[in-house]
């Protein structure tokens, strides 16, 4: 695969990054990322992955745009109220980078729907707003051997880890209690913006193979007092989903 003259110019600033280069750009163009949730995390994740030149983005979200989304969900604008988020998002992403294939899917993520959605996908970004779907994503990704970049936020707190099936602890290992938190949750737009940016950095590194990943590590960010803490995660040998990284 060759990059066009236009692509070489469009992506010039990131091609200048030596461990990425033209090789990384070509690789990115051949990848397919599934963005699970196009809200506070999913909006900036989709924007930066589209800008970066990922070949294909599948957007999955069954919700419609509401007024209360606007403090953080930057792909949705006032005229979009009532429209399905994936179509609202796809329209802007196409204008942002017409060379990226955008595949909007307005369905709820269930074990059944996820099976088909993961076909041909290189990476999933977890941009969900609830626990239940995260466990479904985790199980589907472990089963299909697809890496999953988890992001979560609450108020000014955020967290991110990269789950690599067979290598790192899975979501179930990390959160065996798996209970739901309060909804609606408090949040400032800057919190998902920050975590989403970190998710995109992880995605680009993972897809093109450079740098260090947050694999088996969780980074916690607390914007209230500007604390950044990384902890090491452990596999749970008794994990019913990954069997402690064996599956």
């Amino acid at each position: 695969m060759q990059l066009s003259e236009e692509e070489l110019v469009r992506y010039n600033r990131q091609i200048l990054f030596s461990s990425f280069g033209e090789k990384g750009q070509k690789r990115l163009k051949q990848t397919h990322v599934l963005i699970a949730g196009v809200g506070g995390l999913g909006s900036p994740v989709a924007i930066y992955l589209a800008c970066a030149g990922v070949g294909k983005l599948t957007l999955v979200d069954s919700d419609s745009v509401e007024l209360s989304n606007f403090n953080r969900q930057i792909l949705h604008w006032e005229d979009d109220i009532g429209e399905k988020k994936v179509f609202s998002a796809a329209r802007k992403l196409k204008k942002l980078n017409s060379t990226v294939e955008i595949n909007p899917v307005a369905v709820k993520i269930t074990p059944e729907s996820l099976e088909g959605l993961l076909e041909g996908v290189d990476l999933v970004t977890d941009c969900m707003d609830n626990m239940e779907t995260r466990f479904i994503l985790n199980e589907g990704c472990i089963r299909k051997d697809v890496p999953l970049i988890h992001g979560g936020i609450h108020g000014l707190i955020g967290e991110i880890t990269t789950i690599i099936p067979g290598k790192t602890p899975c979501f179930e290992c990390i959160f065996p209690r798996g209970a739901e938190r309060q909804k609606p949750f408090p949040v400032f737009g800057a919190t998902p913006a920050l975590i989403a940016s970190l998710q995109v950095m992880e995605a680009i590194k993972l897809l093109t193979g450079f740098g260090q990943l947050l694999a088996g590590k969780m980074l916690y960010v607390n914007g209230e007092d500007m604390e950044f803490v990384t902890i090491t995660l452990q596999k749970n040998e008794a994990c019913k989903i990954c069997g402690g990284g064996k599956r």
């Binding site: 949730g37 609830n130 707190i157 065996p176 209690r177």
Partner: peptide, 29 residues
């Protein structure tokens, strides 16, 4: 000591020098 204490967290025994870590799940998105 780095391992989840689930499901009997509160009755889980600890000894001198152990580390108990409290993790919050930020579930919003």
């Amino acid at each position: 000591n780095g391992k989840s204490a689930y499901p009997e967290e509160l009755t889980c025994t600890v000894t001198d020098g152990d580390e108990v870590r409290i993790i919050v799940f930020a579930a919003g998105g």
